[in-house]
Computed example of a mutant assay.
Amino acid sequence: MSETRLTEAEYDAITEAAAQWCMRLHEPDCTDQEREAFAVWLNADPLHAFEYEAMLDIWDVSEHLPPPAPTPAPVIAM
């Protein structure tokens, strides 16, 4: 059985989709239809599930990071 090779752009698109799904599914207004669309996407390719799991790991780690420092307001000279 031969392995299908993805281009860097194709792999990046899967990674981006996994990140988008991760963010969307964590939103309180995520609909049942979106969750169904996610399930279809997730089951379409084993790489989708792999990348989504990686995004969940990143999500979990990010919850332990300190919040970013506020950006100082720009000084306007008069």
Rank of each mutant, 00 (worst) to 15 (best):
W59R: 11
T7A: 05
D32F: 08
V75Y: 12
M55I: 00
N43E: 13
L56G: 12
T15K: 12
H26Y: 05
A18R: 09
A49F: 03
E63F: 03
A19T: 09
A77W: 02
L42H: 15
A13M: 04
M1C: 02
E3A: 12
W21I: 00
P70F: 00
T15Q: 14
E16C: 07
C30G: 04
P66R: 08
P70L: 00
Y52N: 07
A77S: 08
P46G: 03
C30H: 06
S2H: 14
E63L: 10
C22Q: 08
P72H: 07
I76D: 00
F38H: 10
L6E: 05
T71N: 10
I58A: 13
A44C: 02
E8K: 15
T31W: 06
E10K: 15
P68K: 12
H26E: 15
T7M: 04
L42T: 00
E8T: 15
P67A: 06
P66K: 05
I76M: 07
E27Q: 11
I14M: 06
P28V: 05
T31Y: 05
E51T: 03
H64Q: 15
T7H: 14
E8R: 15
L56E: 11
Y11C: 06
A37G: 01
Q20F: 08
V75S: 07
D32L: 14
W41Q: 02
Q33H: 12
P72D: 04
W21E: 03
V40E: 09
E10A: 12
P67K: 10
E51M: 08
A77L: 13
A49G: 06
A54T: 06
A17S: 13
M78H: 05
R35V: 00
R24E: 06
S62Q: 14
P46E: 09
E27K: 06
A17Q: 14
W59Y: 14
P66H: 06
A13R: 14
A19V: 05
R5H: 14
H26C: 09
R5F: 07
D45L: 00
A18S: 09
M1A: 10
M23W: 09
M1W: 11
A44Y: 13
L65M: 09
E53K: 12
M78R: 11
E16P: 00
C22P: 01
P68L: 08
R24P: 03
C22Y: 05
Q20M: 05
A39P: 01
P70T: 06
L42Q: 11
W41F: 00
P74V: 05
I14H: 13
F50D: 09
P74F: 01
V75Q: 07
E10G: 03
A54Q: 14
E16A: 13
L47Y: 13
H64L: 13
P70W: 02
R5Y: 03
L25F: 01
A77T: 06
T71V: 07
E34P: 03
D45N: 15
A18I: 02
P74Q: 07
E34N: 07
A9T: 04
C30A: 15
D60K: 08
C22D: 13
M78A: 11
L47T: 04
P68I: 00
A39S: 11
E51D: 04
M78F: 13
